[in-house]
Design a protein around this nucleic acid. Structure first.
Lengths: 110, 110
DNA sequence: CAGTATCCTCTCGGATACTG
DNA sequence: CAGTATCCGAGAGGATACTG
């Protein structure tokens, strides 16, 4: 099995890249992330954050205060992932209309 | 729902980026792709190629000979995707060891 | 060679309810 | 606030067998 698949599991994750991108400008709290990432469920945000933490891409910092305060921040490696993923995300946004058109065309003939 | 999610559905596909990368140096036949992409099943290669064709990212050319000959080649848009994805794939290869280490470390404490 | 067809399992991920 | 726990349905994707 090609090793590249292991990292495409990160990229292919439904939410991981969006979380990484959302953290580009500095640390955020759980609720702030949830608000920023439209459509993500509480459960999936938790799971995604845990996975990214496990992979060494972000850090989780708990402040023992009331009410609880947890801060998520990209690690240096997480920042390099953000840089590497940026062109792909930009490509995606730029080519979305072209892909929609190609699909309509394809389906119209099929 | 954030529009970026729609494009991550294209890019987040388990095999799509590997197919695009494998076609970077020119057209390949079905069996050549299957051999080059370690671990992909016959079914998933078929499905992935169909999706990429539908999205206008590659072309499928059938030569009516015996035995059958089908050639897959990136479109100009497919080539731009390949360019956009290159940094991420390089990042993947470069950081795999670090991610493995982070996982072992995390699991060792958890 | 380049698929299609079928079956079947397993994981992803949403909804909901509860807690320190 | 920042989670955890539980349940559940849909669909991704692998294995296998067959075909023009």
């Amino acid at each position: 099995m090609c090793r590249t698949r292991a990292v495409l599991d990160i990229v292919g994750d439904k939410w991981a890249l969006l979380v990484v991108r959302t953290l580009r400008d500095g640390p955020l709290r759980f609720t702030e992330l949830k608000r920023a990432i439209d459509g993500i469920s509480q459960r999936m945000l938790t799971v995604t954050l845990r996975d990214l933490e496990r992979d060494g891409l972000l850090t989780r910092t708990v402040f023992n205060v009331m009410p609880p305060h947890v801060s998520y921040e990209l690690t240096p490696m997480g920042l390099t992932l953000r840089e590497a993923a940026a062109p792909l995300l930009e490509w995606s946004v730029a080519h979305l209309p072209a892909i929609d058109a190609a699909r309509s065309d394809y389906d119209g003939r099929g």
